[in-house]
Design a protein around this nucleic acid. Structure first.
Lengths: 138, 138
DNA sequence: CTTGAAGGTGCGAACATCTCGCAATTAGCG
DNA sequence: CGCTAATTGCGAGATGTTCGCACCTTCAAG
């Protein structure tokens, strides 16, 4: 039973770079393209940044990874399987916390009912002040 | 009665560039730094982009304007008075809709109660698919 | 009204990110 | 094995934003 590789299943060629980019994203959890490249270089030093960008895009197109905006400008990538939480970004200390998507369920439903807007809560972070910073009142 | 200018009240010097940047932000609603610069150039052609960036930052520090991330990478600026709505960004057509912040009230309260996280819902857009695109199912 | 110090502006260079074109390489079908 | 199209590496280029520095303005003090 020739169980085809998950990349081949999606019509992609199986290149070492591609596999490494995918596993880097999986290992890193949240990662910028730069961080992915750095991780990949541990086992494949010659990989080019362009290749990382292109593979992230390709992998996103076939649904294996997704990107999220955590602020500033750059996107960060996740394995698609892990997108089960939303991101709480603290504007004071910069920390990124997680919360289950369920906390947004009512909000999402309201937007759907009132505006017909289908929300993907994981795509943008939720911005604010984390508990620690709010307490310290820096 | 010498009502001091709003900029002077906040300890800022009154320069033509500064005033123009502020009024451009007010007139434009949502605007990228580039758009602000373009608007300002209508009455003050020589203004430098750096000056726009610096003034946006300065005005933000004193609370007259705020920036929001609507996606991609760049920030967009608002007059602080107008930040009474959240932004619904459609990933399909790119449109930016508004919704009153009240729709997020429960969500914000949940995050505060369960995580101690004080949310600023206006800072990041809410990403998803707008009613039109969802209907067309493009 | 003058004047000096601090703040602000313009300009160009430097970055940081990300995209693209192109030639060389490689996966995978037949 | 041999071909073709997909993929990679590389360098150049497009953006978007920041920074240093010399010159210019604001404004308060005299």
């Amino acid at each position: 039973m020739a169980e085809p590789h998950e990349l081949r299943q999606r019509g992609l060629r199986l290149t070492p770079q591609r596999e490494l980019v995918l596993s880097a994203v999986r290992e890193l959890g949240h990662a910028t393209p730069e961080e992915v490249a750095e991780r990949v270089r541990q086992s494949h030093p010659g990989i080019n940044l362009s290749t990382v960008y292109r593979n992230l895009e390709t992998l996103e197109n076939v649904g294996l990874v997704q990107h999220t905006h955590l602020g500033h400008g750059g996107a960060t990538y996740h394995a698609a399987e892990e997108l089960t939480h939303l991101h709480l970004v603290c504007g004071t200390c910069g920390s990124v916390g997680d919360a289950p998507i369920e906390v947004a369920a009512n909000f999402v439903n309201s937007l759907a009912d009132d505006y017909g807007f289908k929300t993907d809560v994981t795509h943008f972070a939720v911005y604010g002040t984390c508990a620690d910073c709010a307490r310290d009142d820096i």
